[in-house]
């Protein structure tokens, strides 16, 4: 291996490791600070609300998002596929803040579970559909062509070839959408709570929200446990199938 290539390789690996260390430190710091602050009743209630709304939003978004991704990836081709994907991404580019604006009064009055779920659904749906489409489209073309040559229809190819091959990508899409929705839910709850308490512009010297770090620590624990458990179950079931 040339020395120049080896140097670049180790430099990229070192900077990548540094980034991972920074993220791990940020997670650790939040957990430490959160545990030091303690989990008060209202923090736990907010975490429960964020978690149930995120789970509900993901459950409601999964089927329509997967269906849309399947349609765009498998039933459309060329410019039509690009237009379909662009439509999904245009919706994904809508920040949650803009949707929240449309129901601001109700949000500040106290966000109910259906309202919060509805708002999070608008984030989860395009996010999940975009990632699922990428996962489905990355399945090698040769697998599809072989199935078509054997006389399978597009629907049969999608169900028996594409979906099983893209399963890992779809699982990653689901977990990533879940953690993103969880983070957005916490931010929304905090902003709504702040606005309800102080209807004024910020003054100098005020302190930032205190129990937000405890809330973040609770969500981090969920964000770590749920995807890791899902991955563990996935890898063990794959091992079981192989043996």
């Amino acid at each position: 291996m040339p020395a120049d290539s080896r140097r670049r390789s180790s430099w990229a690996a070192a900077s990548g490791t540094a980034v991972l260390v920074v993220v791990a430190a940020l997670v650790g710091l939040t957990l430490w600070q959160g545990f030091r602050q303690g989990f008060r009743e209202e923090t736990l209630a907010a975490a429960r609300q964020a978690l149930s709304a995120a789970l509900l939003a993901i459950a409601l978004a999964a089927a329509p998002a997967a269906g849309t991704a399947l349609y765009v990836s498998e039933f459309l081709d060329g410019p039509r596929r690009r237009a379909g994907k662009c439509l999904i991404e245009l919706l994904a580019a809508f920040p949650l803040l803009v949707w929240a604006l449309l129901v601001w009064e109700r949000l500040v009055a106290g966000p109910s579970l259906p309202l919060l779920t509805g708002l999070l659904l608008l984030v989860a749906l395009p996010h999940l559909a975009t990632l699922a489409e990428e996962a489905l489209h990355s399945v090698p073309l040769s697998s599809r062509q072989t199935a078509h040559r054997l006389g399978a229809t597009v629907w049969q190819t999608s169900c028996r070839v594409v979906l099983p091959a893209a399963w890992n990508g779809l699982r990653s899409a689901l977990t990533l959408t879940f953690v993103r929705v969880l983070a957005e839910a916490a931010t929304l709850l905090w902003i709504a709570d702040w606005s309800a308490r102080t209807s004024r512009l910020p003054d100098a010297g005020s302190s930032p929200g205190s129990n937000v770090i405890a809330l973040a620590a609770a969500l981090i624990l969920v964000g770590f446990a749920l995807p890791t458990a899902l991955q563990w179950v996935g890898s063990h079931s794959a091992k079981g199938r192989r043996s």
Partner: peptide, 19 residues
């Protein structure tokens, strides 16, 4: 590592700025 990164992605922006 992926678990830690997922936990990091679940971190709300308000918590990052507060820290």
């Amino acid at each position: 590592l992926t678990g830690v990164l997922h936990a990091g992605a679940a971190l709300p922006s308000v918590a990052v700025i507060s820290l």
